[in-house]
């Protein structure tokens, strides 16, 4: 191997290393992974049983606007957004066309029942024992909130905490659909 070839190879290696270094440095800057999936525009099919035994299904709810919130009792952001959900629910308590369901992800029924009683949660709460509803919505954590229009199509979704104004915007988005 001649000296010139060795030097050429060294330069090539240095270029590759520099590129790799930039990629690694960029990778370090990034925060957590961003979710790239999403189901806006799709019609998820689900069927859950609420704590009082009522069965709610995507078919049965057709014609009404449905707010679906995935949550559980050990998730801190869920507890933080609970007041916003309560206020939103109270505002729309009179609207017959709006249904709100809190679907529990990865938690025990006992803990959920206690929590619902203590906090006086007034909207529908359902367990999802085999995670089939979570799968239908492509849920990867909690809280995640979806609003489904009367046509059964998801109009808006939010991964992470929501505020009352977020919820109102999402609701407007969904009500527009028929």
């Amino acid at each position: 191997m001649t000296a010139t070839r060795i030097r050429a190879a060294a330069v090539a290696v240095a270029v590759v290393l520099a590129a790799a270094g930039i990629v690694l440095a960029l990778g370090m800057d990034d925060g957590g992974p961003t979710v790239t999936g999403g189901i806006v525009g799709e019609s998820p099919r689900f069927e859950v049983e609420t704590l009082d035994g009522t069965v709610l299904s995507s078919e049965g709810l057709r014609g009404r606007t449905v707010v679906v919130n995935f949550w559980n009792t050990w998730c801190i952001p869920c507890l933080r957004e609970a007041p916003a959900l309560a206020e939103f629910h109270a505002r729309h308590a009179g609207d017959d066309d709006v249904v709100m369901i809190g679907i529990v992800r990865d938690d025990t029924e006992r803990a959920v029942r206690e929590h619902v009683e203590e906090e006086g949660i007034a909207w529908e709460v359902a367990m999802d024992p085999r995670s089939r509803a979570a799968l239908a919505f492509g849920v990867t954590g909690q809280p995640e909130t979806f609003v489904i229009g009367p046509d059964g199509v998801v109009a808006a979704e939010r991964r992470g905490e929501v505020s009352v104004s977020d919820l109102e915007l999402m609701l407007d988005e969904a009500r527009g659909r028929t």
Binding site: M1, I6, A10, A14
Partner: peptide, 11 residues
């Protein structure tokens, strides 16, 4: 890499 390039003549 720099050391290898520097010493290329003797390598």
């Amino acid at each position: 890499v720099a050391l290898v390039a520097w010493r290329a003549d003797r390598l």
